[in-house]
C-alpha cells in the first residue's frame, strides 16, 4: 500500500516542535517576509529560528519544507532567491514554489534539494504538471482543491511525480494563486505580498443587538448574528446584499473548512503520496489536535484498521466542514 506522508503546518518554532512531536512526517514553514503566502504579523521564522527548527525536526526524523510559494513582482526576484539560498544553507529538505522563475532558480542553483509545486501554481491537469516536472524537475505537486477523487486517480496515472492533497483546514480555494480580491480592496496582494485580508485592514464592530460585523479596508464583509458562528474576514467568504438578493448571501464561498478524514483510504488508493494540513496561521493547540488526529488515522489505515478520526469540527471555520469537490463537483 502507498504510505501517505503527513505534511503539517508551523507558523512559529514552537508550533513546528509541536507538529513534530505530534507525529508530522514533514512540516512546512516560511520566512518573515513576502516569500510565503502566510506573511502575517508576528508569524513565521527568522533564519536562526529555521536553523534550530531544522535541527529539531531532523533529530526526530521529520523533514522541513520551505514555502516560497508567492510570486515575485516583475524584476524583484532577489528576496526569493536569497530566501532559497538561505533555506538551502540551513538544510531544508524541499522547497515549495509556485512561480516559474523561482522554480527555475531553485532548479538551477540547488539541484540536490527537492522541488514541490505549491497549490498556488494551480496546476490541475496532467499537461500542466508534466510541464513543471520536465522543465524544473518538480518531484511533487500539491493539487488544487477542485478535483474529485476519480479525477485525482486519473491525474496520478499520467504524471511522473508524487501527488499531495489537502485534507484539512481553510477551504478558500477560488482560483488558487490567481485571487485578486484582497488586492482590489487593500492594495496588498495575496499572491505577491503573501497577505490575504491583512490584519491591519480588518476591523470588527460589535452592535447593540450582539451581532458583529467584519470589515476589510472599510468594506463590510459580513455581519454575524448574536448566535451565529463566525468566519475569517476574507472577501471570498463574505455575505453580501445585491439588488436581487437583499437578504444577504454568500456570493463566492461560505465560511467552512475542508475535512477529508472519511476519505483518507480512498485518497491513498487513488495514489496520493502526501496529505497536507492547512493552518500555519493557527495556534499550537490547533496543530497539536489536528496533527495528532490525522497521525492516528493514517497509522490505522497503514495497519489495515479502519480510521477513527477525532471530531475536529470545533476547530473549523464557521464550525462547519465539507468534503468539497473531493466528494462531488456539485458541492457549491
Amino acid at each position: 500500500m502507498n504510505t501517505a506522508e503527513l505534511i503539517c503546518p508551523a507558523g512559529t518554532p514552537a508550533a513546528l516542535r509541536t507538529a513534530v512531536d505530534a507525529g508530522a512526517d514533514a512540516v512546512y514553514c516560511g520566512f518573515q517576509d513576502a516569500t510565503n503566502a502566510r506573511n502575517f504579523p508576528g508569524l513565521n521564522f527568522t533564519p536562526e529560528e529555521l536553523r534550530e527548527s531544522v535541527a529539531y525536526a531532523h533529530a526526530k526524523g521529520a523533514k522541513v519544507l520551505l514555502t516560497l510559494n508567492t510570486y515575485p513582482p516583475a524584476g524583484k526576484v532577489d528576496l526569493w532567491r536569497q530566501a532559497a539560498d538561505t533555506g538551502a544553507r540551513l538544510g531544508i529538505d524541499a522547497f515549495i514554489v509556485a512561480d516559474m522563475g523561482v522554480a527555475d532558480y531553485v532548479a538551477r542553483s540547488h539541484r540536490g534539494i527537492r522541488l514541490h509545486l505549491s497549490v498556488q501554481a494551480a496546476a490541475s491537469s496532467p499537461e500542466a504538471i508534466r510541464y513543471y516536472c520536465e522543465h524544473f524537475g518538480v518531484k511533487r505537486v500539491v493539487l488544487p482543491r477542485i478535483l474529485t477523487i476519480p479525477e485525482i486517480r486519473e491525474v496520478r496515472k499520467e504524471v511522473p511525480c508524487e501527488i499531495e492533497t489537502f485534507i484539512f483546514g481553510n477551504h478558500g480555494l477560488m482560483v488558487e494563486g490567481r485571487c485578486s480580491l484582497t488586492n482590489y480592496l487593500t492594495g496588498q496582494s495575496t499572491n505577491m505580498d503573501g497577505v490575504c485580508s491583512p490584519a491591519s485592514d480588518v476591523e470588527y464592530t460589535r452592535h447593540d443587538d450582539g451581532s458583529i460585523s467584519s470589515q476589510l479596508a472599510g468594506f463590510t464583509i459580513d455581519c454575524f448574528g448574536p448566535d451565529e458562528k463566525a468566519g475569517y474576514p476574507t472577501i471570498c467568504k463574505g455575505r453580501y446584499t445585491a439588488p436581487h438578493r437583499s437578504e444577504g448571501y454568500y456570493a463566492f464561498e461560505e465560511p467552512v473548512s475542508l475535512n477529508l478524514s472519511r476519505l483518507l483510504p480512498e485518497l491513498i488508493d487513488a495514489g496520493v503520496n502526501a496529505f497536507k494540513i492547512e493552518g500555519r496561521q493557527r495556534s499550537k493547540s490547533y496543530v497539536r489536535e489536528v496533527v495528532s488526529a490525522f497521525r492516528h488515522a493514517v497509522d490505522d489505515i497503514r495497519a489495515g484498521r479502519s480510521a477513527n478520526v477525532a471530531d475536529l469540527v470545533a476547530l473549523t471555520e464557521g464550525q462547519k466542514q465539507t468534503q468539497g469537490a473531493f466528494e462531488t463537483k456539485k458541492w457549491r
Binding site: A230, G231, P255
Partner: peptide
C-alpha cells in the same frame, strides 16, 4: 485555539 474561539463567538 484563538481562531476557533473566535469562530464560536
Amino acid at each position: 485555539d484563538g481562531d476557533a474561539a473566535f469562530f464560536s463567538r
